[in-house]
């Protein structure tokens, strides 16, 4: 049954068995081709397997602008070095100086990858001001901030 198959998916992704999880997900999608949870799980499974184009294909085929998985799409574009498309997505999802944290991280990472270190530094500086020193992510942000600063020298 679908319920049993979703239980299998949950267990398999907890075991990091993403290829097996994809097989269960395909069984679900054979009877329910539009199941958004199953499609979302497929996207994340492909990303965990490093198959970013497969993930992107599902996103483009099955998710409209309305229910789009923005973090997932942006992440795939980043890993595939599709920077023009990523910039487009980032622009569309920015209101004023604000966008979601995940997209700001991707913007900073893309800037670093494309050697626009000043932009990277600027974003990490702002993220550091907003982050709590006790958060796990604080030291990661600081590491990236320092990497971008070092790259400028």
């Amino acid at each position: 049954t679908i319920t049993q198959l979703f239980k299998d998916v949950e267990r398999l992704v907890n075991q990091e068995e993403y290829t097996k999880a994809l097989r269960s997900l395909d069984k679900i999608l054979q009877s329910n081709p539009e199941d958004k949870d199953a499609l979302h799980c497929k996207v994340v499974s492909y990303i965990r397997l490093g198959k970013y184009q497969n993930a992107l294909d599902i996103l483009h085929k099955n998710f409209s602008d309305f229910d789009k998985l923005k973090s997932e799409e942006a992440y795939c574009l980043y890993r595939l070095n599709k920077f023009d498309e990523l910039l487009n997505l980032l622009r569309k999802n920015k209101s004023g100086n604000n966008s979601e944290l995940n997209l700001r991280h991707l913007e900073a990472q893309m800037a670093y990858k494309t050697e626009d270190y000043n932009t990277s530094i600027e974003i990490y500086y702002a993220l550091l001001q907003e982050a709590n020193k006790n958060d796990d992510v604080y030291n990661d942000i600081l590491t990236n901030f320092n990497a971008a600063k070092a790259a400028l020298l």
Partner: peptide, 21 residues
């Protein structure tokens, strides 16, 4: 090359609804 973390990866995750399906 200095250490640089892929922080954005942490924002990619399975749907929270998975356990309720």
């Amino acid at each position: 090359k200095p250490l640089f973390f892929d922080i954005a990866f942490n924002y990619v995750d399975f749907p929270s609804t998975l356990s309720q399906r």
